[in-house]
Design a protein around this nucleic acid. Structure first.
Lengths: 209, 209
DNA sequence: CATCTTTTCAAGCATTTGATTGAATGGTTA
DNA sequence: TAACCATTCAATCAAATGCTTGAAAAGATG
């Protein structure tokens, strides 16, 4: 037979894996990793209970894989948004770039928002192997810090990093809290107009006097 | 017998109730309501498993009581801090007052911090009967809004409320996320110096140009 | 003292949990 | 066709869960 034609059984298995990952993504985003049960995830994925053990070894492994997938999608988007910043970017441009992945997710909803909610939850209850992504987080933080230092003077790096974390926390909060649900019907442009000034203000943190 | 002397059995029961509430407070703060088990809470409280049913009816009721207690403590502190604001308060004074309960809790740790973490979790997964506290939240928000309107011009009330929610979310994030743990060894004054400018900046949200 | 009442306790119950098993399914290969 | 193999499935298991039970403990009350 042709080598190009794939094994139908293997393809079906991969589709089941993908459905399980997708179901886990949504459920973890809504209830957290510990709130997801085996039956729930297999029902949502239209798969048999044993499929989780067969394809992933355990429910914990499936959730871990779903969370890793979400983290990677987030880091890709965040890194791309931040790397577009030039050396002379303003705080508003920084704020817009930094918040863009979350703003897009809030406007888009669905899987994109689920990814951001999982990342936010991971910030509260760091999953095992979180350290695996430290380097990429550090890289993004370095890009942000560079722009911050060019715009804000007489503030220690440590304190600028704290401001970045405060802003990231604020955005994560909007993804998780029901209060942030009001924002989800709005367009990207509208969200940008609302949030960017607040974020830039937090970055600036100056009395203006 | 004297009416003033209390029944020792009743007193012992009340002490058990208090221990259960206290154990639930700590555990809910750390793992969330759904992460608390009956055995865990009774072990921590040095009480028998049946004590929960006997005193509170169910684990859910015990957790509900602990969460309500935490919410009330929080609202008392927040309301007191905000009501100290005068009509001519600056944004920095507003920021300091608004963040004071969280700053005190971060500096104090222990039960005070547990209370704030439970309130933060309640903002993500609102418990039943949350609506019971709507009026008090609304009152605090009104006080904040008054000061904001006096300091920020040409911004709709709706958007000022959003800023308040963003700031509240940022503070809640610091209570929940492990990243915020770095702040917990610092003094109130140091925390105020670090956070108040950021919060005031988010409230101000102006380009300064 | 005898009787009540409040609280505590160990044992056990039904349900739900994650996980396993051996058989069945059905495409693949010789 | 027949042997093979990746996948699916229903049935089942042990452990953990929330909760209940009847008895025991011990202060209160007459």
């Amino acid at each position: 037979m042709e080598a190009a034609r794939a094994d139908q059984r293997r393809e079906a298995g991969l589709r089941t894996q993908a459905r399980l990952l997708d179901a886990a993504l949504t459920l973890i985003a809504d209830r957290g990793e510990d709130g997801v049960t085996l039956r729930e995830v297999t029902d949502a994925a239209e798969a048999n209970i044993a499929a989780v053990s067969y394809h992933f070894g355990s429910l914990k492994s499936l959730c871990g894989a779903a969370i890793e997938q979400a983290l990677e999608r987030y880091l890709d988007a965040q890194q791309e948004a931040v790397s577009a910043l030039g050396p002379g970017s303003t705080l508003e441009q920084l704020a817009a770039a930094f918040a863009r992945p979350m703003i897009r997710a809030l406007a888009a909803g669905g899987r994109d928002l689920a990814v951001m909610r999982i990342v936010a939850r991971a910030g509260i209850d760091p999953p095992q192997g979180w350290a695996r992504f430290d380097a990429r987080f550090h890289g993004i933080r370095a890009d942000v810090l560079r722009v911050l230092k060019a715009n804000v003077s007489d503030v220690k790096d440590q304190d600028l990093i704290l401001r970045t974390r405060c802003v990231a926390g604020m955005l994560n909060w909007l993804a998780l809290a029901p209060i942030g649900a009001e924002l989800r019907s709005k367009s990207e442009k509208r969200l940008e107009r609302l949030l960017v000034p607040v974020i830039a203000g937090a970055f600036r943190a100056t009395d203006c006097g």
